[in-house]
């Protein structure tokens, strides 16, 4: 008994939705397009849409001027490192809460969530001083540690909601068969938990890649990931639109692709499992 929709209505909806979609996407499209222009063309008036001399020199220029690849690798190491470390710490916790819940489990989860409400600026000063005195300022390892901590509540929550969906009867059956806890984890639950862990991994890489408070405040140059590197374009010299666009395009492309693949998990992770 599906509602029949008139063709005209469908076309009108399509036109409106596409217009809004294109408008919202336009700044990104424009950035990608500008990255293939020369600097002169990038500020030409009227702006050229497709008919210009396409060039990839900006990409080479960005790399040769500033070791772009080094910053890119910093982003990769920091986001991947903090995510893996976070998973290592969070998987056992989420596991225990999902399969051996106590009356206090919900409180622990809520408390973990509440740590996210602590504004980062409330701990900026001591973190900066601690990092300075132990030599962690402007190091990858320092940022891995901080990003692990700030994303840990999200990782635990997200894993918890996934683990919750694994039927407990399977656990009981394997226990009856005399499987030890270790065996239970390795042979029974891991295969069922992998999809949830993978989604958590994806979402957390996105969050860590784009994190722009601690990365800006705790790095200078050596360990600066792309968020901080791009920020250096805020006080540029000379013509720089095309170079800014090239640097930006490379910084956002990996995450755009990851994000498009994980839309569903995005919702679930960002709402702490409240909306699925």
């Amino acid at each position: 008994m599906a509602q029949t929709v008139s063709k005209e209505r469908k076309i009108i909806v399509t036109v409106i939705a596409w217009s809004i979609g294109i408008a919202l996407f336009f700044p990104i499209f424009w950035t990608i397009l500008t990255s293939f222009k020369t600097e002169a063309e990038a500020i030409a008036s009227p702006p050229s849409l497709f008919f210009f001399d396409w060039t990839t020199e900006n990409y080479a220029e960005v790399q040769s001027r500033s070791n772009y690849f080094g910053h890119f690798m910093n982003s990769v190491v920091i986001s991947l490192g903090s995510t893996l470390l976070g998973l290592l710490i969070a998987i056992p916790a989420a596991w225990a809460m999902a399969f051996s819940p106590t009356p206090r489990t919900k409180d622990v989860l809520m408390w973990m969530l509440s740590t996210k409400m602590l504004p980062p600026v409330g701990v900026l000063v001591p973190m900066y001083l601690i990092f300075r005195s132990v030599g962690l300022l402007d190091t990858r390892i320092g940022l891995v540690l901080v990003l692990t901590l700030i994303n840990l509540p999200i990782i635990v929550w997200m894993l918890y909601t996934y683990f919750k969906e694994i039927p407990g009867e399977i656990l009981e059956a394997s226990r009856m068969d005399g499987a030890s806890l270790m065996k239970e984890i390795i042979y029974v639950l891991t295969p069922m938990a992998v999809p949830g862990i993978a989604s958590t991994l994806l979402l957390n890489i996105i969050l860590a890649w784009n994190e722009a408070f601690w990365t800006l405040n705790l790095t200078a140059s050596k360990a600066a990931p792309l968020t901080a590197f791009i920020a250096s374009y805020s006080s540029p010299e000379g013509l720089f639109y095309a170079k800014l666009s090239a640097a930006s395009t490379m910084a956002i492309a990996p995450i755009l692709i990851l994000g498009w693949f994980s839309q569903k998990q995005l919702v679930r992770g960002l709402t702490f499992g409240a909306v699925k």
């Binding site: 809004i20 979609g21 919202l24 996407f25 990104i28 784009n210 901080a228 995005l266």
Partner: peptide, 11 residues
């Protein structure tokens, strides 16, 4: 529509 959310704030 989703794309802007995936862009890093500095960009």
């Amino acid at each position: 529509v989703i794309a802007p959310f995936l862009i890093m704030p500095t960009v």
